[in-house]
Each structure stands twice: as structure tokens, then as C-alpha cells.
Simulated assay, not measured.
Amino acid sequence: MEKFRDELKSWMKESGKSRDWVAEKLGVGKRTVDSWFSYKQIPEKKQKLLRELMEKEQQPKQVEISMDFTPEQLEMIRQAAALRGETPGEWCERAIKALTAVSVALNDYHRVGGKGG
């Protein structure tokens, strides 16, 4: 029981979920959730629901993005994708992930005042 409670606490901290969020998802009051973290056991049915929520929340979210390309841009994407053995959609997904990583790195760089390491 303690193991699950610790696992839940850790997951909540990592995912930014509050006790209010847990209470709302399980249809109980926050005081009930507070008691689970203090002295009461979490009922088996609620543990099962919490595990399902934890698994669901850890799954990657699917997002659909729509963009307009000129015929020339689309052909460049097709050619670049073909060189890597990818579909144009796979190529675009990889490119967006790479650009996102660069954006995060630049934001981190600026947040620390533009100083390296």
C-alpha cells in the first residue's frame, strides 16, 4: 500500500497534478484524497482508477497540424523525405520536433541571460 502511495505522490509531482485534480477525477472530495496521503488506505477500486489515469496521462498526445505549402515547397519536402526513406508526413514530424528542440534550447539560453553552461 505504501508503495502505491509513494508511486502516486511521485507521479503527481512529476506530472504537476494536484490533490484537487485527483479528487475531481475520482469523484471524491479533496479531504478524502488528503486522508489517503496521511493515514487512510486508498481503496482498491480507486487505486485501479488511479493506475488507469496514470497510464493514460503518460501516453503521448496526438496532435494534428495543418499547413499550407506552395507546390514548390511540397516538392522539396517530398524529395527530402525520399532521401531519408520517409513519407512527407514523417519528414515534417521529425522536422517539427527538431525545431521545437532548438526553440527550447534557445529559450533556456535566453532565460539564463545568454550565458553558456
Rank of each mutant, 00 (worst) to 15 (best):
K45R: 13
S35T: 14
Q41G: 09
L106M: 11
G114Q: 08
V63A: 01
Q59T: 07
E57Y: 10
S35I: 04
L49V: 06
D20Y: 12
R51M: 13
L99I: 08
F37R: 04
I42L: 02
E44V: 08
E93H: 04
I42V: 06
E2T: 07
S15W: 08
D108H: 04
K56G: 11
F37C: 08
A95R: 09
A81E: 03
R5A: 04
L99K: 13
F4A: 04
D108W: 01
S38A: 15
G85P: 02
Q58H: 11
E55P: 00
K30D: 10
K61F: 10
K40H: 13
E86T: 01
G29F: 08
G27R: 06
K46P: 01
V63L: 04
V102K: 14
G114W: 09
W21P: 01
K30P: 03
V22Q: 01
Y39P: 00
R5D: 08
Q58F: 02
K40P: 02
L83H: 03
K45A: 13
T70I: 08
L8Q: 03
G16V: 09
M54D: 10
V102S: 10
G113Q: 11
A95I: 05
R31E: 15
E2K: 03
T100C: 04
E14I: 04
M1W: 11
K46S: 15
E55Y: 02
L50K: 00
L26Y: 03
A81I: 02
L83R: 08
R51H: 12
P60D: 14
A95K: 09
R84P: 00
E72V: 11
G85R: 02
K46E: 15
V63N: 03
K45E: 14
E52M: 12
K13W: 07
W91L: 10
Q62A: 08
V112G: 04
G29Q: 15
K13F: 11
K61Q: 15
L99Y: 11
L49Q: 15
S66F: 02
E64W: 00
V22A: 05
C92I: 14
L26M: 13
K9Q: 14
K56W: 09
